[in-house]
Amino acid sequence: MEVRTIKVFTTVDNINLHTQVVDMSMTYGQQFGPTYLDGADVTKIKPHNSHEGKTFYVLPNDDTLRVEAFEYYHTTDPSFLGRYMSALNHTKKWKYPQVNGLTSIKWADNNCYLATALLTLQQIELKFNPPALQDAYYRARAGEAANFCALILAYCNKTVGELGDVRETMSYLFQHANLDSCKRVLNVVCKTCGQQQTTLKGVEAVMYMGTLSYEQFKKGVQIPCTCGKQATKYLVQQESPFVMMSAPPAQYELKHGTFTCASEYTGNYQCGHYKHITSKETLYCIDGALLTKSSEYKGPITDVFYKENSYTTTIK
């Protein structure tokens, strides 16, 4: 009895394709271990004539594949690729409408935090270190965002349907971005203890939790000093293409032309909904596939993004 075979390709990165001759009487799992086709788990399936010449994702289970996976995804987590594939199996079914010149995501599976993050990423200057993220990001900007969303979920250790947080998501993504040249110098002034300067680099240099107003941050924000008295913390120097200011959701007025974009969060910790506000020729609110415009805006804002380049204080 002759062994019926077909020729397929296996890959971990969709760049390096490895030619395989597979036995049609055995499952993919018996031949390769966990195997995925377009995100779908085909591990328990036997090869079919229609699979001839198709590319299958496999887990990096030998040295060659491990090197290829690390170079593309910059992670050695053995569960990463499987999590990416199972997320992709959902995100490829989502709709990605162009809204006001940006790629958004039609609401499904509690994905409003991903839509808000995706919209924000198209408006701030950011370059990702893992080629996987950078490639998928370019495709997302062009309207094909399924891979990018699935990668975000995998890097953030999230599953489809789980509630997510924009600030946490951005923080994970910033860790995989090139923020080497970003720098922030802060000064804390206390009447009792004097003053202390701190220099922050990388992710810490672009994120701040405690106030939404970048102007206020430049002037000074009140913080408790270690001595128990009130101290003032203010920005001395900022070198970065953008800054992200966050605070627990509270009524906040966004003035046209003073910011790049913002995240609105309605609801409580267990259950809520994100919308995205962007400042173009007027203010726009993007909620999944829905767009509304207004000249002014007041609502429960939790993150505001500002364009920056270089700032030095005039406070002496």
Rank of each mutant, 00 (worst) to 15 (best):
G161T: 01
A69T: 09
C182P: 00
V304F: 05
Q30P: 05
E162F: 03
T282Q: 09
F70E: 08
M209Q: 11
N178G: 01
A145M: 06
T35G: 06
Y137R: 04
L121H: 04
N147Q: 12
E71C: 12
A87E: 00
I286K: 02
Y252I: 10
A140R: 02
A145E: 02
L119F: 02
M170C: 14
K46C: 14
P131Q: 06
A205T: 06
M207Y: 08
R83C: 06
S295Q: 11
H276S: 00
T10S: 11
T55S: 13
A250K: 11
P241A: 09
D165R: 04
I15A: 06
Y311L: 02
T43Q: 10
Q222S: 13
K92D: 05
L119Q: 04
H276M: 08
C190Y: 05
Y113C: 13
S294L: 15
K316A: 15
R4E: 15
D41H: 10
K191L: 13
L186Q: 09
A108H: 00
L133A: 00
T260H: 03
L186Y: 15
G210M: 03
G228K: 03
V166R: 04
M244D: 01
E168L: 11
Y234A: 04
Y96P: 08
I277R: 03
M26W: 01
C193T: 04
W107R: 00
C149F: 06
V166N: 07
G53S: 11
L291S: 15
S104K: 04
T27D: 11
M24K: 11
N111R: 02
L179R: 02
E204L: 06
T91S: 05
D63R: 02
D38E: 13
V8Y: 04
L290W: 09
T211M: 09
S104H: 01
T27R: 11
S104T: 15
Q270P: 04
Q98G: 02
G101L: 05
Q123N: 05
S79V: 05
Y208I: 04
G29W: 05
A177V: 06
T292E: 10
T199W: 03
D165N: 08
N309L: 02
Q196H: 15
Q30T: 12
I315H: 15
K7I: 13
D287W: 05
R184W: 00
K46A: 13
V243L: 05
K54F: 13
N268E: 12
K44S: 13
L37A: 12
G210Q: 02
Y252W: 11
T159A: 15
T192W: 02
N89L: 12
G29N: 08
P47V: 09
R141L: 12
S310A: 11
F80W: 07
I301Y: 00
D180H: 11
L133H: 06
V58R: 08
N100W: 00
T159S: 14
Y73N: 07
L81S: 03
V221L: 12
K44Q: 15
A136P: 04
L121D: 00
K191D: 11
F259L: 01
K307F: 05
G267E: 05
Y311D: 14
D13R: 03
L212Q: 04
M245A: 00
K183G: 07
Q196S: 12
Q123C: 03
S246T: 02
P34W: 08
K298D: 07
V160G: 03
S279F: 01
G228A: 04
R167K: 05
A262C: 03
I223K: 08
S25R: 13
E52T: 12
F128G: 02
Y284N: 05
K298F: 15
T302N: 00
Q122E: 02
T103L: 06
S279R: 02
V21F: 14
T314R: 15
V304S: 04
D287V: 05
V99Y: 10
C227E: 04
L186N: 05
H18M: 07
E253K: 07
S86N: 15
P130L: 02
C271W: 11
F70L: 14
N110C: 06
F32H: 01
N268W: 04
M24G: 08
K298C: 11
R139Y: 09
T198M: 13
E168D: 01
C149Q: 00
K275C: 07
T266K: 07
V21Q: 15
F259T: 01
D109S: 04
C271S: 11
K298A: 11
P47Q: 04
G220I: 03
N187L: 11
R4D: 10
Q270H: 12
K293F: 07
T314F: 14
I124P: 01
L163N: 02
D41V: 07
G267V: 07
M24H: 13
P241F: 04
W94M: 00
G53E: 14
Q197H: 06
Y172M: 15
G101H: 00
K219E: 01
K54M: 14
N157L: 01
M209C: 13
T192N: 14
F70N: 14
E215P: 02
Q196G: 07
A115Q: 02
A142G: 14
Y57N: 08
A87K: 02
H276W: 12
Y274S: 00
M209P: 01
T116N: 09
A154W: 07
N309A: 15
M24R: 13
V8M: 10
Y138C: 15
E281R: 03
G299D: 01
N268G: 10
T103H: 05
G228D: 01
T211K: 03
K293G: 04
C156Y: 00
Q123G: 04
Y265T: 07
Y57S: 08
A40K: 13
S240F: 03
Y269C: 07
A136T: 08
R4Q: 10
P47W: 05
Q197P: 04
K127A: 10
K191W: 09
G288T: 01
R139A: 14
A142I: 12
F242T: 02
L102R: 03
N147M: 10
D303T: 00
N14L: 10
N49F: 13
V185F: 03
T75S: 13
F305L: 00
G143E: 04
G202M: 03
T278Y: 12
E215I: 03
I286L: 00
Y274W: 00
T55A: 09
T266C: 03
I15C: 10
L186F: 13
K46R: 13
A177F: 01
T260K: 00
L65P: 01
A154V: 02
L153G: 04
Y234I: 11
Q175A: 12
Q237S: 13
H18T: 11
Q238G: 01
H90I: 12
E239K: 11
G161Q: 02
K191Y: 08
Y113W: 15
Y311V: 03
N49Q: 15
K127R: 12
Q230E: 11
Q237W: 07
A177N: 07
T76V: 12
L102D: 01
Q238C: 01
Y214N: 03
K54Y: 11
